[in-house]
Amino acid sequence: MDYVLLTEQFLNGFQLGIILFLMAAGLTLVFGIMDLVNLAHGSMFMIGAFVGGTIAVVTGSFVIGVILMIPAMLIIGIVVEMTTLRTLYPRDHLDHVLATFGLILFFNEATRLIWGPEGLVVPLPDFLEGSVALGAITYPVYRIVIIVVGLLVALGLYVLVAKTRIGMLIRAGASNRTMAGALGVNIPLLFSVVFGIGAVLAGLAGLIITPITAAQIGMGEDVLILAFVVIVIGGIGSIRGAFIASIVTGVIDTMGRSFLDVFLLLFLPENAAESAGPALSSMMIYILMAAILFFRPQGLFPPKGAR
């Protein structure tokens, strides 16, 4: 086995996992604390990419784009929560699905009207282009940056949730919303803040992946599906679970894509291996999810005291 390639593929998987984590963290908070199925989380991913990307193109600085995207997404998230989602909390999950699916259509069409159908290409500053040698492997600088940024965000979220007062309220909300409300926690305000944080994280994920994939209408939907898989595996409402499940999912998906066809060649004819490889590798994470649902329906790391 080629260790250089193996390490590189592990880094690729880790980087995919980081993007999934940024999506899943917000999704799991919103689902776990607010009990809201939010399909429009993928739209936040897309809006972050377009808004931040536009700022980056206009100002000529990707870093400014990232910095200004944060307050922009916080405001957009809070506005969406206050105008649309607030009325949905007492309703059941099917109504959430219907309404947030409507939001997806709305945001996709709005993006098409504002930016046109061709999407947005965001250039990187020179110091983030190209690759750098890490021992025997060379790896794109920008993908290393994504990994570092993701780890910092994960650390920041850990501190926020575990060490601060607002984190305490979030945890209280996650384990028992009614009781937290009865004890005087301002639940509507808490929900707005949580949704805003989720929107910022999703927007950040969308924006940092944009220099790699280019911003597209509907770009969030495929990531959203993976993010749902992640929160089911990790346990709904758990940031720690989301982090570990994201990395596991990212690495398994990437390893499957890179080595499964070679592996299948050992006992299948070339043609069959070539077509079965991609099909099977895209199924692997769903097989993992099914297995975890069977043995541990509550996920790997459900939050303490969750209902």
């Binding site: 590189e8 995919l16 060379t138 495929d222 990437t254 894509r257 890179s258 070539e274 895209s282």
Partner: peptide, 22 residues
């Protein structure tokens, strides 16, 4: 080498490009 990727959803080719490099 030959990689057939998932269409149209796959937009990140990090795994395939690493294999090309190798």
């Amino acid at each position: 080498g030959k990689d057939m990727t998932v269409w149209p959803s796959q937009r990140d080719w990090s795994a395939e490009l690493s294999k090309v490099k190798a």
